[in-house]
């Protein structure tokens, strides 16, 4: 369980970050293989979302390096960073759809921003992406007219709109019922199969992510404490993993 095998798409080296005296990331180092589905697990408030924000370049670490496809994004200017971000798709925790735009306009947004296409072509891409996530019939609805699961599906369609090389999912199934969670995981697998993209998930839904991931990491006390394939995680005797899988309040992950 020492590291994800294969060519790295993302590499973090000793990333540290503190807020108001609290060390949230305390020397995080890992590699994420190209074309894989990798999940970072951890407790709520344990720094998973902070970690994803660092990888997207929304926040800068106090120290350390973050390599995206070989380029260190720490200290990069906004123009360079935007060049890298054009290769990203991000599904935020609550989908972060633009309230003032319809479902169709939300998915069309990144296409209109970055590709010089005719409106007909834009619509064709948007309809294709929305059909893939089963939202093709809700083109003209606004985000406030959608359920949580529907918003996530539209968010996924928007994240995939530019056929990115790398997609980040921040808690893709939080706040969803078990059926909708299953639908989202199926969509993650289906879209990944079609596009051969690198997917990075952060989640605390261990049973769900073990079924979809190629590689799983556990963030604990600001560091990657355990990592391995889903099979290795399932058979792990590590008390952290055991407590997480047992959904128990007793163990190293106790409240503090």
């Amino acid at each position: 369980m020492s590291g994800s095998p294969g060519i790295p798409m993302i590499r973090l080296e000793n990333v540290c970050k503190h807020y108001n005296g609290q060390q949230v990331l305390d020397g995080v180092s890992f590699e994420i293989r190209k074309g894989s589905i990798t999940t970072i697990m951890g407790r709520s408030g344990g720094g998973k979302s902070v970690l994803i924000r660092h990888m997207i370049g929304l926040e800068a670490p106090d120290s350390g390096a973050i390599y995206i496809d070989g380029e260190n994004i720490v200290g990069m200017g906004s123009r360079e960073l935007n060049r890298i971000r054009r290769r990203f798709g991000v599904l935020f925790q609550d989908a972060a759809l633009f309230d003032s735009l319809t479902v169709e306009e939300n998915v069309a947004f990144p296409i209109r921003e970055h590709l010089r296409l005719r409106e007909k072509q834009v619509r064709a891409i948007v309809h294709d992406k929305l059909d893939k996530v089963g939202m093709g019939e809700h083109l003209h609805k606004f985000p406030n007219e959608l359920s949580g699961g529907m918003r996530k599906r539209v968010g996924l369609a928007r994240a995939l709109a530019l056929d990115p090389d790398l997609v980040f999912f921040d808690e893709p199934t939080s706040g969803l019922d078990p059926i909708t969670r299953g639908v989202i995981y199926d969509l993650i697998l289906d879209t990944h199969r079609e596009m051969d993209t690198t997917y990075v998930l952060v989640s605390h839904d261990i049973h769900g992510v073990l079924n979809v991931s190629d590689w799983v990491m556990m963030l604990f006390k600001g560091r990657i404490a355990v990592q391995g394939t889903p099979e290795e995680i399932r058979s792990s005797t590590d008390p952290l993993i055991q407590q997480f899988t047992a959904v128990s309040g007793h163990g190293p992950l106790s409240m503090d």
Binding site: L58, R83, R85, F92, D94, A96, F98, H114
Partner: peptide
């Protein structure tokens, strides 16, 4: 609601 973060993430 992270809409501003979404804009940044879309370059």
């Amino acid at each position: 609601s992270q809409q501003i973060d979404a804009l940044v993430s879309m370059a």
